[in-house]
Design a protein around this nucleic acid. Sequence first.
DNA 1: TTGGTGTGCTAAATCGTTTTAGGCTAACCA
DNA 2: TGGTTAGCCTAAAACGATTTAGCACACCAA
Lengths: 334, 334
Amino acid sequence: MKSLSIKDIAVKANVSITTVSFIINGKAKEKSISEAVIEKVKKIIEESGYKPNQIARSLRTGNSNIIGLIIEDISNSFFSRIARLIEDKAYKRGYKIIYSSTENNVDKAKELINLFKSRKVDAYIISPIKGIEEDVQMLLDDGNPVIFFDRNLPDVDTSYVGADHFNASYQSIQSFIDQGKKNIALVTTDINVAQITERHDGYKKALEDNGIAYNDDLVLKIHFNQEENETIAQIKSLLENKKVDAVLFVTNYLAISGLKALKQIDKKIGDDFAVIAYDDHEAFELHTPRISAIQQPLEEIAEAIIKLILNRLSSKGKLPAEELIIPTRLVLRD
Amino acid sequence: MKSLSIKDIAVKANVSITTVSFIINGKAKEKSISEAVIEKVKKIIEESGYKPNQIARSLRTGNSNIIGLIIEDISNSFFSRIARLIEDKAYKRGYKIIYSSTENNVDKAKELINLFKSRKVDAYIISPIKGIEEDVQMLLDDGNPVIFFDRNLPDVDTSYVGADHFNASYQSIQSFIDQGKKNIALVTTDINVAQITERHDGYKKALEDNGIAYNDDLVLKIHFNQEENETIAQIKSLLENKKVDAVLFVTNYLAISGLKALKQIDKKIGDDFAVIAYDDHEAFELHTPRISAIQQPLEEIAEAIIKLILNRLSSKGKLPAEELIIPTRLVLRD
DNA sequence: TTGGTGTGCTAAATCGTTTTAGGCTAACCA
DNA sequence: TGGTTAGCCTAAAACGATTTAGCACACCAA
């Protein structure tokens, strides 16, 4: 069974295709179509269940009402929650989201950009990685709205929404120091993205401001794609050998590996040893003892992204790039 | 800057559009285009970075190389992990996934189906809810491949991939009984979907087969959309008042609320009180003590779904519906 | 010479919309 | 009477690809 086209409706209503199109697109008044015809056509559309073919519409108008979302990994709860919020908000404004994960792979990211480009998405929301600067620049040159979130690419001049990674990290370390901690470790990753560097920098600066020397032995950089077992082993050796009395994990999955490691070496979190994780996670609230975490305000981030996108979509000319740095919340538990 | 069209390439190469199209689609040989022309055109395409407009292509061919995925909630880790796996596998076979969450809302689900329909997706992967039977039937009548997963709709005759919910539940209860438990509670939801009912039925049957009377007071049905605080309160009153010595949570988010509740009433999980959760979660491994869980083999499920879809996509005629019930794994911890 | 068979290529229709430019009628005014 | 205007509607081009049908030439066999 073939689906109906605008032509079928036109024939049934005994009017032209043009007329039907005007009515569908709410231009009937403006184009002075009579009330009677409007009614008749609407009725037929209603009864027949006709839905315009979006592909044809996109081809003609050049826009798709689709926003492309490119993230690192949809199965990571930070991204899946953001995705859900963005999807929801976009949907309410008549936009659909299509998303895909880069898995921190430059080639895949480039491919995704091309794919979305050939599908003529109206705008791009990207959690970028280094190496795609040129591709993004081409999108911008073609006049596409692009919003970065979570991480920024300094060489590309486009809008960005993200948490205040530097201060979040700084405050966490400060709070350790206020509790009297002296040997504060940092578990981070070796992926070279801005938000990870910022978190690292906040750590350094807080130590410095408090007159504590930065000690490379207390900083563990985990390879991005390695097996979790290896990560756990590395964290174990960091935490069991030293007089470490506090540790900041820069991502929640590192924190989870860290907690597993702690379990194995039986190092207890408590007065003598404190932990903070970047990005909250259900497991932290449930853990015994409960784990402190830096919360990113997901709702606000999602809202900011959508607002920026819609502004750009509705204004003809290019708008200047905006940077929205959103404060985080340090939740100290137990 | 407008993007290139096939016409631009044709002009540059001084051949017809048709010829370019044949070359792009690998029909050059078959259509006896000379080696020289093929080379020339390919070179120009390469150099100019031309990418065919998929919208135009879809309009003409009627298919989009896009598979629609309709799930309950992308921020739920079961779905986000499945989505990631499906995305990955589909991608490798040249298909893109677009997904969207129904939030267990019939209207939203119907809207999504229509939306995907008007975008001419090639196939549908749906974790269905009651009330969309007719809409799905229409898709099937139009010849679209539709695969259900996680839950089934008995009135619709289409393929289904899902875990063996009944037996998973049965085995969990049996394992409680083998440990000598007598008062086994069930925390479930009031959403009326097959997989929840099956889990409930497995519970009943296991009790019955062991000569234990089914006691309604031990079964708590949580409203789907209620606040977590209320859920926690209800679970608290279930677990603190009774002599309950074991509990099965039918979803992982219920289990998480349950663990929060247990924390508040200080009921300890151990020899006297056992817990099993349906669907594993990072928090369970980390919890003290570790929480037993029923694992669904996500990888297998995703693979089965994609296989079914691709079969249907590549075969012209309709294939008979297949049901794949995949065994689960009960992971007993601590 | 005629007819048949490849080879190498292309013109034009088509998919289902949106949109521009304009046609026709009746009414109104001077 | 004729010109202008307003009201109502439509023909046809365009978006960018795929695909059908067929043209022109060369070659070969009878």
